[in-house]
Design a protein around this nucleic acid. Structure first.
Lengths: 255, 255
DNA sequence: GCGCATCAGTCTTGTATAAGAATTCTCCTA
DNA sequence: TAGGAGAATTCTTATACAAGACTGATGCGC
């Protein structure tokens, strides 16, 4: 079986993965890498059905149980969804679940707040040194999306998103963009956001934010810096957001 | 094997678990419940070694593989730690890892901020209706821990923690309390915090917070409401914290 | 005799595999 | 149109072997 395994790993390499297997990497990890490669390459599009555990195992020269272990971990990471009796599918980021996963603002009663879109400007420009350093592959040019978002009609959110131009060709021409950017990223550019690191502070609104939201400059607002990572763990978006949290709260869970 | 399984579940019931198994619950979930029961009951204390996969399986009438599946999930939940060639151990909440897991304040360079303790008062009183409704088992009396914490000598954090008196007998007499409360909870009261839900807002400091931290009343501070849950998923602590985030940020990860 | 390295043994978890059960959907039939 | 057989899928359980880690005995040099 080991020879077949090596063959399976070899196909994974052909699909784009060629590091990290020097010392007999476990088979199931090689399978994980193969599946991720196929998603990244577009061979498996969001919503597509994966081969069954048995077929995937046969194809890569491993047993059904090993393929299963790989699929279980992919589901834990949120990359695929599985349904008994039906099959395994590449996770689809819909406007609904994208909001539920990454938009954390809650109403006073704890329910999810539903944001609207009041203003939007999309521009292309050179990346700053800081942006190039934080984004993967140090892009030279970026798209900047500046938005004012509303909740129940009130202008409460001001946010700037920066993405590499090379990964999002023609983004600026697509304006106006839909409310849920991450669903657009996946559907139009095949980039699935699966993880985000955030840095949160309470600050007094600066002049730019205050005028955008129509508030006084000294008002406390929540300042959130986000780095968003795709399925291949590349940092593909920087986002700086300001929230007015007088009647809403940012809900998170620590585990 | 199914009859033996039922027997295993029966022993789990004797250990304290007697709901949620009406319709042929999977064996490995019954094993998970049994292990959790033993930890909650104090039969397995933090740091104690669990039976090996083989022994645990034999004891409960399931195979090593099934016991293994249960132990894997317990490790994912952070309830136990496993080391190849050594064994499985009930997770120990040390002051260090408790801070790393639940104290999210970061220095400007992204490293973990180390808090100190400047002031502390511990009192016992009747629970408010709101507190009784949020805490598990609607306790009549609570302990309240009010603290001012420092970072690099600066008074930057003001926090009030409320815990049920019945679960923490004699807590008030233990003052002064150690810096890491959750380590104390586990070591002195056998209550392991494994999860917390937080609600974050940016507000202007109120009079109480401002005087405690020595800042002006209008200064923006981060207001964090936390509900902390133990291994049995009971809400055992309410905490209201105020952070001065001029030079520090609250770091979280969304996945 | 004392100290230290080495090595075998044993206990543990990690990996791989396989067989049968449970779930879901489709399609045919009455 | 309702119901049931069948096929496809994931889910559960079980077993065998590999790999890592600690223990203690053994032997050698000093």
């Amino acid at each position: 079986m080991r020879s077949d395994l090596v063959h399976g790993v070899a196909s994974a390499m052909e699909a784009g993965l060629d590091q990290a297997n020097l010392m007999t990497e476990p088979l199931y990890k090689a399978v994980i890498g193969t599946v991720i490669d196929r998603i990244v390459s577009g061979e498996l599009v969001p919503g597509a059905m994966l081969p069954s555990e048995y077929d995937l195992g046969a194809e890569l020269g491993v047993s059904q149980g090993t393929a299963r272990k790989a699929l279980e971990e992919l589901e834990r990471r949120g990359i695929i969804k599985r349904r008994q009796g039906v099959g395994s599918f590449v996770a689809v980021r819909t406007p609904e679940n994208a909001l539920f996963q990454f938009f954390r603002l809650r109403n006073p009663d704890g329910t999810q707040a539903i944001p609207g879109l009041a203003e939007e400007t999309v521009t292309s420009r050179k990346a700053t040194a800081s942006e190039a350093g934080q984004l993967s592959d140090a892009p030279e040019r970026v798209h900047e999306i500046v938005r004012v978002r509303t909740i129940d009609g009130a202008r409460l959110i001001y946010e700037k998103s920066v993405v590499p131009a090379v990964l999002f060709p023609g983004l600026a021409e697509r304006a106006p963009l839909p409310n849920a950017l991450y669903a657009l990223y996946q559907q139009a550019f095949r980039i699935a956001i699966v993880r985000a690191d955030e840095s949160i502070r309470a600050v007094a609104a600066d002049q730019e934010t205050a005028s955008a939201l129509g508030i006084v400059e000294t008002r406390p607002v929540m300042r959130v810096e986000r780095k968003a990572f795709d399925i291949a763990d590349r940092c593909v978006e920087l986002r700086l957001s300001f929230y007015v949290t007088d009647h809403h709260a940012y809900g998170i869970s620590l585990a």
